[in-house]
């Protein structure tokens, strides 16, 4: 019944604003084996500071999802190094990797990826089950997170009983509930109409204002404009990096 982890989703450590959340160097990803290999990422170096909102844009197939998956620890890079929240994570495996994923990142998918049989509340509680948070504490924090995304009236609803926008809100609440250093979203509004997209992006805005570091993949210009920095990727390389916070020197930022 102990609840060791009680920190809130948005509370960060002191001095977080000056610290790099993401520090990636020369990340590569090659899919497949033998003759049918695809080099999805051809060496990406990138630094993102705490509190930044980065929009990741680029044509279809350029490697945006591949990069996000690597940054979200959902996949392992073929080469390169990755420091997440001050911790070298590119060499992690097994349980350590799972725990880093659990504690450091929140991931929002285009297709929501909620467990269809579970209620909104149970879906949001899930990351805390794996973080070994007690039942009452889970309930409290999940309820709070759902209130924060404007779903206090939908706690007991199952995904099939929710609209696309509502499902994405549940997914966002779930991504935040373990208090990650970083919120990653791969085309979070890709399945939503423009009005709902607008609402979701407003929610991201609120989260950003409260200090959450955000990285969003998008096709839509309006969505990209909301961020304070836009990184463009083409053919697995960073092609442009606009509005990045000053004083931060990222080596191959504009290399081509």
């Amino acid at each position: 019944m102990q609840s060791t982890k009680t920190r809130e989703g948005t509370e960060g450590g002191a001095g977080r604003a000056s610290r790099a959340v993401i520090e990636a160097r020369d990340l590569t990803k090659v899919y497949g084996r033998g003759e049918n290999t695809v080099e999805a990422l051809a060496g990406v170096s990138l630094a993102v500071e705490a509190g930044e909102w980065v929009s990741l844009i680029g044509p279809s197939g350029s490697g945006k999802s591949t990069l996000m998956n690597l940054l979200g620890l959902l996949d392992r890079p073929t080469g390169g190094s990755y420091n997440l929240g001050g911790r070298e994570v590119s060499g992690l495996r097994g349980g350590e990797l799972s725990r880093a994923r659990r504690d450091l990142v929140g991931f929002v998918f285009q297709s929501y990826n909620l467990l269809p049989g579970e209620t909104a509340l149970a879906n949001v509680e899930l990351p805390m089950v794996y973080a070994d948070v007690g039942r009452k504490e889970r309930r409290r924090r999940a309820t709070e997170a759902l209130e924060r995304v404007g779903l206090s009236g939908r706690l007991k609803h199952k995904p099939t009983e929710l609209s696309g926008g509502q499902m994405q809100r549940v997914a966002i609440a779930r991504a935040l509930v373990n208090g990650p250093s970083l919120l990653l979203a791969d085309e979070p509004t890709g399945n939503l109409d423009s009005k709902t997209s607008e609402e979701i992006m407003s929610l991201f805005g609120e989260l950003h204002d409260s200090g959450v570091t955000i990285m969003v993949v998008t096709h839509e210009a309006e969505v990209a404009e909301r961020g304070d920095r836009t990184i463009e990727i083409r053919d697995g390389r960073i092609f442009g990096d606009e509005g990045r916070s000053p004083g931060r020197d990222v080596e191959n930022g504009g290399r081509r």
Partner: peptide
């Protein structure tokens, strides 16, 4: 399998 993917994405270990 997809459910397993979701659980792992949320921090479940192989053992969990």
């Amino acid at each position: 399998t997809r459910e397993i993917g979701v659980r792992k994405a949320l921090g479940a270990t192989d053992g969990d």
